[in-house]
Amino acid sequence: MLHYDFMQRAFFAGGIIALIASALGVYLLLRRQALMADMLSHVSLAGVAAGTYLGINPSLAGFVVAVLGAIAVEYVRKAYKTYSELSVAIIMVGGLSLAVILMTMNKSVNKSFSSYLFGSVVAVNRTELMIMLAAALIGALFFFLLRRPLYMVSFDEESARTSGIPVQWISFGFSIVTGMIVAAAMPIVGVLLVSALIILPAALSVRISSSFTTAILISMGIGLTGTFTGLTASYELSTPPGGTIAFVLLLFLVAGLGLKKLFALGSKRSGRLVMRPETPVSRRHRAADNEHWSSS
């Protein structure tokens, strides 16, 4: 399989995007912005349509519009602080409606419409590969240098702000990086399934990891394994690569959660749950907790 040039390119592109998208997914999930990836992929479709209409490279135009959409969502989020998910709905409606209008104005878009909707990783061209590499490098640098402030911002923005973290700038930068990664991931799984590549590995890793760093590393591992397995299965079974990758990741999630439950049940039955020895301090704390919860 790997002696084909197009498969080598597919594995290379899928690998770099799987790693960076899975890391991004953990932050999106913890910042309660899981739908943002889905929204930005729909918005970038407007960029693809506009690019084709104006004679600009559609992938590049989609990339720029996804970044602009990510910045816009940050501003709308501030206007609807209490209902922050509204910002996702508003920007998605704006982007999608514009995409539909532009596509009907230019019939040539419809011909390649399905490749944007469902992805075509085996047909990744040089420009798309360069965009993916640039997005992955910038994203990796951003997440590495700001991993500690990002932990604080993801945990609690107010405490982060009072302790001197420039929350506004970090959120702004995070939005731009999100837009870039979503746009770069589109050729792999397409608009409709891009959130699978970003969110599914993170959804499993946050359930099974004990620490923040482990959650990111496990998510990257799941993303990479799922993408490579999906690509292999797609080649062997002659199924569409985007859908196959997304389906494999979903299977990983279901299997992972199932195994976790089975393991917990097994530990309970065999009495292997390790009880921590109680110290005078922990005994006092436990008594206080019981007292607090019984009185409230």
């Binding site: 913890l30 309660r32 932990y151 993801s154 945990f155 609690d156 405490s159 890793s205 946050v206 359930r207 990891s209 004990s210 620490s211 923040f212 482990t214 959650a215």
Partner: peptide, 11 residues
């Protein structure tokens, strides 16, 4: 802090 109740993966 809301994150305490949302299964935030941290030691």
């Amino acid at each position: 802090i809301a994150a305490f109740n949302s299964g935030f993966p941290s030691q």
